[in-house]
């Protein structure tokens, strides 16, 4: 049985810590969903409050996460996983995963009432689903958000059906591919600008996946370095000059002195 509680607190951290004590498990074992968030209207009048539902993650559910190895110094491994089963097993596994997805997608797209076709490809041990057709735009969504949701849903489904080692990418009318190209171009262009201006540049907030593309695109460039700052979903990549100059100086600015007599 899964136990869940609803907890209120000022910060997510605080809520999770209290729930961890309540359940007597480490924080990492908890799953949660934010139910309500009081953003602190007008900042001062009412305190910030969060209402969170917390439960123990029994470990059964393994949500596929795009946690990239985000540091630029660490090259992203392309395909070789350490404990890969023999090729035969793997291709059989892939075939079964494909069959399961095929079955699901057929019903799924029909129930979504969209006019599209889809096809599978196997590439470097990964499954690739490509969707095309009249309603492709609808399935991509604003900034690709629906596409992302579909991909993440299918990954969860794979994990649930016991195919957690099967890699999956979904693309709709070549959208992901174009996005990737654009990001690579953006990375190179910005790197050039950084070298020209001798000034670091911050990119717009990006998802983990997008940030990884930027990091990877510039990891072999000897003259610039990349790192990320900020919290999700506002996390963004900074492209900076390598060496030659001190790293960004984030230390405190001298504050103007407060005087007591200005009432």
């Amino acid at each position: 049985m899964q136990r869940s509680v609803e907890v209120s607190g000022k910060t997510l951290e605080e809520v999770l810590e209290r729930s961890a004590r309540y359940f007597e498990v480490p924080k990492e074992k908890l799953g949660y969903e934010i139910i309500a968030e009081n953003k602190g209207f007008l900042g001062i009048l009412s305190p910030k409050m969060l209402r969170v539902r917390v439960w123990i993650d029994e470990g059964g559910e393994k949500t596929e996460e795009e946690s990239p190895q985000e540091t630029s110094s660490q090259p992203v491994k392309a395909s070789s996983t350490p404990d890969q089963p023999p090729d035969e097993d793997q291709s059989q596994n892939l075939a079964r995963a494909r069959e399961m997805l095929d079955q699901f997608l057929g019903g799924f797209l029909k129930k979504m009432e969209v006019e599209v076709n889809y096809s599978f490809q196997e590439k470097e041990g990964r499954l690739l689903v490509e969707i095309e057709g009249q309603d492709a735009g609808l399935l991509i969504g604003k900034r690709g958000e629906t596409l992302e949701a579909i991909e993440s849903f299918l990954k969860i489904l794979l994990a649930k059906k016991g195919f957690s080692q099967v890699g999956l990418s979904v693309d709709i009318s070549g959208y992901q591919k174009r996005q990737e190209e654009n990001l690579k171009q953006l990375a190179q262009k910005t790197a050039q600008k950084v070298l020209q201006d001798k000034k670091r540049a911050k990119l717009r907030p990006m998802s983990a996946k997008e940030r990884r593309i930027i990091h990877t695109a510039l990891k072999d460039n000897p003259r610039v370095t990349t790192y990320s700052i900020g919290q999700e979903p506002q996390r963004r990549v900074v492209i900076d000059l390598k060496n030659g100059r001190k790293k960004a100086n984030y230390s405190k600015k001298p504050r103007p002195k407060k005087t007591r007599n200005n009432v």
Binding site: Q2, W55, T63, K111, L139, S152
Partner: peptide, 28 residues
Amino acid sequence: PEDMGKVIGKQGRIARSIRTIVKAACVK
């Protein structure tokens, strides 16, 4: 009750995906 976590997911991730997909399907 024991399936709640499977539908919501860590940090509500699964629930969010479902919502986004259903929203898109209702656009028409």
